[in-house]
């Protein structure tokens, strides 16, 4: 059984600086998002119990070949990449079409695992769209997955309860970060990652048409302005009074 983990290459958030309210993305190293890494860790654990194979799938610009080594070091067996320099700017419906086309080329698919949202845009839409295109059942917000030959038993993490459901395979599942802590790869696995099989497709090979006109245009991407109130408090009574007045509307809102 193949366990596919869809992972997105994103700028390393630790290195991003904000200048004039806009993120400076030049020369920022690309990494895989933390929830994606949790999804991978869960997939690697499932592989160990099901004797499956973990295939990393990712679409992005040419840096993706380097970025994916991180996933191969952390337990992926092989990678399938869709490489195109324009893909990074495409919206989730296009990315979903591209991933679905690539998944259709893989036999014996058990589950396709996504993080619940990417570390950059966090739309959480791609997994649903992939499931719809492939006609697979979809389950969101999984915090536990158990597999047998034909079924996935999934515990969903809802706001104030857990829901356990079963779906036939193949299925598309999005996971929450608590499903599994990301694995720290060992040094040998890091160095062996470069030798693991990596297939690279280009869009024309997948026969996927990318619309000439983009469906979504990003007009601006500005960091929120945060201003501290700068209140000077001179006595405990005054502090108590301010806290009381400040907190009242919040309590009412709840």
């Amino acid at each position: 059984m193949n366990i596919i983990v869809a992972m997105k290459q994103v700028p390393d958030l630790h290195h991003i600086r904000i200048r004039n309210r806009e993120p400076v993305l030049d020369d920022i190293p690309m990494v895989l998002g933390d929830i994606d890494k949790s999804a991978l860790a869960a997939a690697v654990e499932l592989k160990e119990t099901t004797q499956g194979r973990v295939i990393i799938m990712s679409a992005g610009n040419r840096k993706i070949r380097d970025t994916v080594k991180e996933a191969l070091a952390a337990g992926g067996d092989e990678a399938i990449l869709i490489e195109d320099d324009d893909l990074a700017d495409e919206d989730s419906s296009v990315i979903a079409g591209v991933l679905a086309a690539a998944i259709q080329r893989i036999g014996d698919v058990g589950i396709v695992v996504f993080g619940e949202g990417s570390a950059d845009n966090y739309s959480g839409r791609v997994f649903s769209a992939v499931a719809a295109i492939l006609g697979y059942p979809q389950v969101g917000y999984a915090k536990r997955i158990e597999l047998n030959d034909s079924l996935a038993r999934v515990t969903r993490s809802l706001e104030d309860s857990d829901e356990i459901i079963e779906v036939p395979l193949p299925a598309v599942i999005s996971v929450v970060s608590e499903i599994k802590e990301p694995r720290i790869p060992s040094v040998k696995n890091i160095l062996k990652a470069r030798k693991k099989p990596t297939a690279v497709y280009h869009l024309n090979e997948l026969c996927v048409e990318v619309p000439a006109e983009k469906n979504i245009t990003t007009i601006s991407n500005l960091a929120p302005v945060s201003r501290r109130k700068g209140i000077v408090i001179t006595s405990v009574d005054e502090l108590a009074k301010i806290l009381k007045n400040d907190r009242k509307p919040d309590r009412q809102a709840q």
Partner: peptide
């Protein structure tokens, strides 16, 4: 290189955690 960065990250993640 990516491998050097990953070795650095492994050590850093291990040390912090």
């Amino acid at each position: 290189s990516k491998e050097q960065l990953l070795i650095r990250n492994t050590a850093r993640d291990f040390a912090e955690k």
